[in-house]
Design a protein around this nucleic acid. Structure first.
Lengths: 156, 156
DNA sequence: GTATTCACTGGGCAATGTGCTCAGTCGTGT
DNA sequence: ACACGACTGAGCACATTGCCCAGTGAATAC
């Protein structure tokens, strides 16, 4: 679970040039191929690297509108609501949280008008008491992990 | 920008088994290798597939706590705040939004206690008027895109 | 002090996949 | 009838992979 400097360099390199192979990585990092291979295997079985799935852009798929919805759930209906939301393709992510809301979910839609349809579908379910939605305008920091990896590689 | 059925199958297959090669994909999908290669190139230059960067689990890196913070910004300080937040490794994502808050960001921390340090660092900046934080307890629907891809592949 | 363990090195091997090219086929639209 | 675009199936040289091995050095255990 601890990440050393070499692990960090491997992850960063992989993030910058994903198509790169193990051999090329070993050349760039100045270590033997077997080492890189062993490190990668370890990182994956550790769960540090979950996978290499393709990053798909919802906007390019025709869903340029992103929003976050805070949901308040009727007591004891949590499981049902989770199951309901899991069936909605436009729900990209769902968290249960502390605080004023009970759940927070990330939505996408084809347009602002279409967002209404999505929200209706999301909240059109018995267990949901209230929903408040914030539409995303800009995304100054897209989902990233590299700075954290670098910090973990140095600090620990 | 339109995604057809074959594109959808390619993305889904790639998501399920990322290490798979073009040749193996063509076998599984029952099409020629060149076709898969051409589709993949097109999907990438379209921007539908942004990349294949490694998915790193912050929890495995020692940051098991996730939180969402809603920030209220003093008028005209937006750019400064964005720049400030971009320098904090624990800020994984930042959006500007409509609604009660002005920005929404995703944070991670080593522990609930450590989250306090992160929040202090985030809000310890002049342009931020107020912050309200929701700690994530469960994540019933982890960030996903496959259902949306399947819908886009069928519907359009 | 000596032995054991572990990670890393550097090398070799067969098998596979890649990038690239080409000619031929099919369906659509002009 | 024709041109165009997408797909097929095949071939080629080349690089990479997965796997193996023996040797080295450092840290740990005895």
């Amino acid at each position: 679970m601890a990440i050393d400097h070499l692990d960090g360099r491997i992850i960063v390199l992989l993030a910058r040039e994903p198509r790169i192979g193990v051999l090329e990585m070993s050349r760039r990092l100045g270590v033997a191929r077997g080492t890189v291979q062993a490190r990668l295997d370890r990182l994956q079985s550790n769960g540090v690297i979950r996978g290499f799935g393709p990053e798909v852009d919802p906007a390019a798929l025709g869903y340029p509108v992103t929003a976050f919805a805070t949901l308040q759930i009727r007591q004891g209906q949590g499981a049902d609501v989770r199951a309901h939301l899991a069936t909605v393709p436009e729900v990209l992510e769902l968290h249960t949280t502390t605080g004023t809301g009970d759940m927070l979910c990330r939505l996408v839609a084809r347009s602002n008008a279409d967002l209404q349809r999505v929200i209706d579908r999301v909240v059109g379910f018995d267990g949901i008491v209230r929903a408040s939605t914030a539409i995303v305008m800009e995304n100054p920091v897209p989902l990233r992990i590299i700075p954290l990896v670098e910090q973990a590689a140095l600090g620990e």
